[in-house]
Structures are given as C-alpha cells and as structure tokens.
Design a protein around this nucleic acid. Structure first.
Lengths: 378, 378
DNA sequence: AGCTTCCGTATGAACGATAAAAATGAGGGT
DNA sequence: ACCCTCATTTTTATCGTTCATACGGAAGCT
C-alpha cells in the first residue's frame, strides 16, 4: 500500500504544459468561425470569402498558430518524413560524402514540406528491418538508400516488404522495379583521363578498390574505356592496381606503380582517400605532385579542396533533389485506386564534373602549387 | 469454422493502399479483445492476465502490427523527435565532426525510442525560426544546438520562445538557464602540450583561429596555461599565431613560425585543417613531420587517421548521449504541474583524449612514419 | 447473504486536423 | 411565389492511439 491510491483521478490535467498551445479550435473561436473554415483558409483559400479569409489570417498571425504536424500526418496518413540511415564515420576514409548527401536531402525535402528522419543500423539487414518497421509504424512515407552494392539485398527486401524507397546508386541487375539516380562514375573517370591526356600524359595509372563494388568497378571501367579510346592500352601497359580504400593502401599502390619500369606520369584514384595516399608516395619518391606526377582523386571531398587535389565531383545536391522528388512522386499517389497508372520508375544517370586543381596542373595558382613553388620549365 | 461468419463485413475492405495497414483494432478483433487490452499488452503488460497477454502477443506477431507513431505522438502530444540542423559542408575545412555528432545523436536517441529530425537553415536566425516553428507545430519535442559561439543569439531566442533545447558547447556567459555539455578544449590543448613536453620539446607553437570563437579561444587558453605551467613562456617566446581555419592559412602561419629566429620544434594546431596545412609547411622547409617537427591537430578527423596526425579527440559519442539524455529529461516531465521542481540544468564538461600518431612520435609504427622512413637516431 | 476490494477487460472521449456531406443564405429565372 | 444554382460556412465522421472511467465477476470480510 502507500503507493496505489490514485483516488485523485481527474485532477491531474490542469494545464497543457506541453508544446502545443494554440490549436485550430482556438483560432476558430477567436475568429468567430468554425474549425473547418480555418482549415480552409490554410488549405483551400479560394473556398473562403476574402473578408473572412483576411480576418482568420490575422487571428492566425496574432495567436502564432501553426498546424500540428502529427495531427495532420495522422489524418492524411502521410507522415511527410523520409527515413535515411546515417552511417558511422569510418576513420580511415577521408572522403565522406554522406554529410553532403544528407544536407542535400534535407534541403530538397524542406522545399516540399518533408523532413528527413535519421536512424542508425549495425548493418544492411538491420537497416532493412528498421526501414520496414518505421514504415509499418507510419513514421516515414518512405526511405532513401545509398551506398548501393551491385547485388544489394536491401532492394529486394524492401521491395518485398512493400516499403517505398528510392536509391542513390543502383544494383547491377535487378528484377525489381525501383527508382534510382546514379552518377556516371565511368564518365567521371573518363573525364579525368581526357583531362590528363590533353595535358600531355600518356602513361596514366589507376588506383582502385578491389572488384565487387559497383562504384569502384564503374570507375575502373571508365579508366579502361577512356585509355583504350585514346589508344593508350598498347602492350602490357596496364597501369591499374587495386587495394583497400585507405591512404596507406593508396601510398603502397602508388609506390608500386612508380617503381615499375615504365612508371605513370599521372594517376587517377578511385577515391580522394587513395589519392591522398598517392600524393604521399609521390613525395616519397622525391617527386612533386602536379609538376612531376599528376594525381586526380574522386568525390571532391573537403580534403581535396584543402590539399589542392584535382578531383571528380559528384552532383550530389542534384541527386538529393531528384531522389527526394521521386520519393514524393512515389508516395504522393496514395489514392491511386483505379487502373494503377503504370508509373515508370526513375532511372537517371548524372554526369559528374572534374574540378581541376594544382595536383594535375602545375601552372595553376592554387594552394598545392604555392606550397611547392619550385622553378618551372613549361 | 465457428469464428468467421461476419457476412456484412466484406463491404468495407477498401484496399489499404497506404502504409498503415494493420491497426490496433484489427489486432483486438482478431484476438477477441478490446483495443484497450491490446494497448495494455504493449504499454502496461502487468495489467493483463498472462493468458490474454500471450494470446494478444501472438496475434500482434502474426499480423505484424506496429503501433502508429503519429497517432501515438498525437495522443501523447510528444512527437518523440529531436530536431537538429545540418550544416552545409564547408569545402575548406577538413575536420568536419558534424557527421560524427549526428550519428551519435541518432544512436543515442534510438535507444530511447526517439528519432532525429534533420533540417537546414541559411543562418542562425533562420535556424532559430525553424526550431520555433517545428516546436510550435509539434513536430519535435525539442532541438539540439551545436557549434555554439560565446554570445550565441540562439540560446536567448529559443529560451524566450520556450523551445526546449540542449547544446553541444556553451556561451561565454548567459543569464538564461539551459543545459549543455561541452568538451574541455583547454584541457585538450594542454594534454597536447604535456605530451610534447614529455617528448622533450621546449619551443612549442600554437596555430589558432582569430579571437572570438569560444572553442578557438579555449584551445588557445589551454596552450597558454600549459606552457606557463611548464615555465616555457619565458621572455618573448610567444610562438602562437592566429588565422583562418583553412589548410593554406595553416601553411602560411606555420611557415612564418618556422622562419623565426627561434623556431618551434613542435606545434599544436586548433584544428586538423590547420594541422594539415602545418604539415605542408614543415615539408616545404625540408623537414620531416614527427622527426624534426612535431605536429598535433585537433578533432581527430578522418584526415588525421589517414595522415598519421596526432590529434585531440573529442568524446563526441558521449556528448551525443548526454545531450540526448538531457533532452529526454527536459521534455519528459510534461506532467510537472505542481510546484515546478527546480530541475537543475545540466552543465557538463568532458575531457578529450589525445590520440598519438606518427606526426608527434617518429618512433611509432604508423603510416606517416612508414612513409618517411628515414634512418633514425634515437 | 450482503458488502467491500480488487483484478481484468470494455467503453467513451479525447488528441488536432481534414474530407465529405449537409446546411445556410443570396440571387436568378420562370 | 416557387424552385434551382451557386458560394460560403458549419456539421459530422474519421485517422490510430491512449486516458479516464465504468463494468462484471471472483474473492475476502463481517
């Protein structure tokens, strides 16, 4: 005993005490109209007489009324939230584009009155399960995937579960129909090659990831194709090597290339991380990046800007915008009861952009060049 | 049979079409109990007879029922969401700890059934307004601020608006009572000094930001205090300089220090970005970082790991946990009608940790050292 | 038996908003 | 006068959940 006497029932809810203070009913009462009219002022202004509309609007402003998200979501059974997993930061990798992507997503969503809901997960399985749970619980309208692998299990699982999703990146082949936007990684690598070839380079190496990642393989393919197009694959001149996505790995790989009989005069790395490692190897060989050996990275991470590293920049802001727009299109058609208009999923490949800095052009006036301002002989 | 002869029920089936398919009523009907009993099974299991509980639980599992977030939030008028602004990625800065913080926040929130809602804003004013709007609209229980400046306007504005918030970092002085968790930046810088002094260094420089940022000033103060404690500020030996938080700035500042009559043998930078710039300057002077000049950074960004840069690591995961826990405490006491128990705001200073790598210890077996493996004479 | 207690479950009413339908009132035509 | 149309507003019902309370029945006490 002692604890269980809640005889004072009905006593406990005196004040609101919580966030939501002013509701649509308060506005209605203050303006002398019904709730629905206030609602109409906000959602269908043309149905309300101008005079009334103005009066209600004034009261709304005076009271500082904001429609309650949760109530609106419940009624519309559309939470106007997009779920997205945030990956733990991997220490070895300099080039994290996650924050850029999340920012782009949040920005794009905000334009359409949607928000991004962050969640974490230990692995892809846990992610799939969380996505499903969140969606079943009506917490999100859909989810956004990124960092897609060629045979990503998430795609089939979410499709099977019926969870609406769009992806940044795509699987190799998939029987499932889903919307994705991807960056043409091959074209990005090719652009780097073209740039280097135009600068006079002939022996151009490539530092890549081990095979099996769609992004890594595409970038490697881009190198191969472009090199072939320029007729630079003659004989045994395959200057491409693979390794883990770490700076030390980049250094090792680059050192290996530089120690070969016919060393490269330029190298394209699959990531900025590898490129940073490559820069070290170049210096270790007593060479100057940009002057003696050109280095191009991938992803245009902050580190690239900071180090004057030429890099391939993905149009992530646009990807974010597209992915979000597609998400809205997918989840927007809730009432599609009749006929199921065959909405084609979005499959869009965007072209990345080469950002040229000192590491591939010793003549430019940029940080790296300034640092290593040796006398030039152009 | 004996269960299903509800002939008239077949009329309302109207395809689910939307996310929310199975509701608490469905479970109740299938289990032959009332809504409330199902609710009790989930929220107050001890009120339900074991047998009933088990039966209901089984049905819940079978139907794959998940309580609707929006409905629950509406009823409880607590969205179980924490708002947090995501800053655009600044290209010049290598050391972004934002993603680490957001991840920590999301992780901590998830433990307590809360989620992080991301939003963007052009500046602090816009952020304040968005926070207020989100809170008024009942979209978030509260918000988390970070990157606090000494006289941050957000604190007073949000306090005035009544928006619950906690902060990572603190203002210089504030009449407002608010909860914050901060990292002892001065202690971090001091730890770096101690480490360097223990390694035999006497002339230790400091690269900092211009005055006016609480973080930057605290790190500078830490340098000054520690240097003084070791009696290393004798005469005109003030080897501290200030500049913008970019690598090029770091290079310039470090070069200036190295060109002085009594150049430093070690330097502590206020950020990894500056430290990376300093590494460049060291190399430009024909010196080897770690062997000839020790460099210590701040924030332990991925770049630090990648480059073998000794750095001061902030316990951001713990900050995230604390900030989230405090947020829950703040917003949790909704029913505090009586007496307003004087809940002390949280003011907690955490100690960062020095992560020693090659840039300050040439004997270690780490990437940078491997790179620059010159014969040593210890 | 009659009364209270207590446990387990069921019912009604919110939470705040909106879609759909109904009501109100002002013209307009015959 | 009558009915019809149109514009404007109000009423009703509902989204899915939980709080407060009511209710039925078994046990305990007198």
């Amino acid at each position: 005993m002692g604890e269980g006497d809640n005889v004072t029932a009905g006593f406990r809810d005196a004040r609101p005490a919580s966030a939501q203070s002013v509701t649509i009913s308060d506005v209605a009462e203050a303006a002398g109209v019904s709730r629905q009219t206030v609602s109409n002022v906000l959602n269908a202004p043309d149905r309300v007489r101008a005079e009334t509309r103005e009066r209600v609007s004034r009261v709304i402003a005076e009271l500082g009324y904001h429609p309650n998200h949760m109530a609106r979501s419940l009624r519309a059974s559309s939470p106007r939230m997009i779920g997205c997993r945030i990956l733990p930061v991997h220490a070895e990798t300099v080039a994290a584009i996650q924050d850029r992507f999340l920012h782009a997503l949040a920005e794009a969503g905000q334009q359409c009155d949607h928000h991004v809901l962050l969640f974490t997960a230990a692995d892809a399985d846990a992610e799939t399960e969380r996505c499903t749970t969140l969606w079943r619980a009506g917490a999100v309208s859909g989810v956004v995937l990124y960092d897609i692998t060629p045979d990503d299990a998430r795609v089939s699982r979410l499709t099977a579960a019926g969870v609406p999703f769009t992806a940044f990146g795509r699987t190799a082949t998939s029987t499932e129909q889903y919307s994705w936007a991807d960056v043409d990684n091959a074209a990005g690598a090719a652009a780097a090659i073209d740039h280097l070839v135009a600068a006079g380079h002939r022996r151009i190496g490539f530092l890549g990831w081990p095979e099996g990642s769609s992004v890594g393989d595409a970038r490697a393919r881009g190198w191969l194709t472009a090199m072939d197009r320029h007729g630079l694959l003659a004989g045994s001149h395959r200057l491409d090597v693979r390794g883990a996505d770490t700076t030390s790995s980049g250094t090792r790989l680059m050192a290996e290339l530089l120690d070969r009989p016919g060393p490269p005069t330029a190298v394209v790395a699959a990531t900025d991380t590898l490129a940073v490692g490559a820069l070290h190897a170049v210096r270790d060989h007593g060479l100057i990046p940009g002057r003696d050996v050109a280095v191009v990275g991938f992803d245009d991470s902050p580190a690239a800007t900071a180090l004057g590293l030429t890099s391939v920049r993905q149009p992530i802001e646009e990807v974010g915008r597209l992915v979000m727009a597609e998400m809205l299109r997918l989840t927007g058609r809730t009432s599609g009861a009749d006929g199921e208009p065959p909405t084609e999923p979005l499959h869009l490949v965007l072209t990345p952009e080469l950002v040229v800095r000192a590491s591939s052009t010793p003549h430019k006036d940029s940080p790296l060049f300034e640092l290593d301002a040796h006398p030039l002989h152009p």
